[in-house]
């Protein structure tokens, strides 16, 4: 009671002090801006370096047109294949605890961490490794009539190997975010696990499936090392846009190389925009 009746001392009265959030935004914004500016400068330098006429000249070259066509087709094939594999694999990794799951989980990431040239070399060795006199590439070429190495299928396979790993990650996160209880209840209503997957899980995963396809497509677009080793860089045959940049550079055609680079930037931006729109909804 005494405490309450004592007069409040001047020293204990709250001191008013106005503070500012400006330093916070300056520091955070400043650090963030460094990276953003770097990217903008990179793109701006490419644009400034080339001229519209260089760009058009480069795009008129039949070799580059062929590379553009092969890039679109091979990236699309790799992305669709990746989705086909990533959807079941991502679902299994998300829903089930099975023996060796950690091993599968680790193996899926190997194409992501492997140096690209090593991946290409590994593909080359796999297809040409003699096993008791039998060789995969020779069998595909002679018996199936479908040669792979240094042909367009090698391009798709090299792109798929890396793109699929990213697609699996995306699909796994997608299914992690979908409540498995609805699938459980569907099973009590008469679904098998397969029907619950097809009728309940998949319709909820469409956004993730589009994201996985887009990510796979974008990764395939940037693929270079494994393609160079496993598919070669034969003009008009196994040349994709990333190899075009390398080939044009190697013959001193810097203008053409930059023009093709800009074309790839434009393609990547389109893909990123699609991803952003689908990932956050049309209104965001």
């Amino acid at each position: 009671m005494r405490l309450m009746s004592e007069p409040v001392k001047a020293s204990s009265s709250p001191t008013f002090r106005r503070r500012s959030d400006t330093p916070f935004f300056l520091v955070m914004g400043g650090i963030s801006a460094c990276f953003i500016i770097l990217i903008v400068l990179l793109l701006a330098a490419d644009v400034v370096f080339t001229s519209p006429s260089d760009f058009i000249d480069a795009l008129r070259k039949p070799e580059i047109q062929a590379a553009f066509r092969l890039t679109i087709l091979s990236c699309s094939a790799a992305a669709v294949l990746s989705l086909w594999v990533a959807t079941p694999l991502g679902y299994l990794l998300s829903r089930y605890r099975f023996p060796g799951r950690w091993l599968v989980d680790t193996l899926v990431d190997i194409p992501i961490v492997l140096p690209p040239l090593v991946l290409g070399l590994s593909l080359l060795i796999l297809f040409h490794l003699p096993i008791f006199g039998w060789e995969l590439e020779a069998w595909l070429r002679d018996s199936v009539g479908f040669p792979v190495t240094y042909q367009w299928p090698a391009v798709v396979l090299a792109q798929f190997s890396v793109a699929c790993a990213f697609a699996v990650r995306t699909m796994r996160v997608t299914f992690d975010q979908i409540d498995p209880r609805a699938e459980d209840v569907a099973r009590t209503l008469g679904c098998t696990r397969g029907q619950a997957f097809m009728q309940i899980a998949l319709p909820q995963a469409w956004r993730g499936m589009i994201a996985a396809t887009t990510i796979a497509w974008a990764r395939a677009l940037g693929e270079f090392g494994p393609i160079l080793v496993f598919a070669g860089a034969t003009r008009m045959r196994t040349e994709v846009l990333s190899t075009t940049v390398f080939l044009e550079l190697s013959i001193g055609q810097l203008n053409a190389a930059v023009a093709v680079s800009l074309l790839m930037v434009a393609m990547a931006v389109v893909v990123l925009l699609i991803l952003r729109v689908l990932g956050t909804g049309l209104n965001a």
Partner: peptide, 9 residues
């Protein structure tokens, strides 16, 4: 079930 688990789609 307690959480109902209706089908969102």
């Amino acid at each position: 079930p307690q959480d109902l688990a209706l089908f969102p789609t």
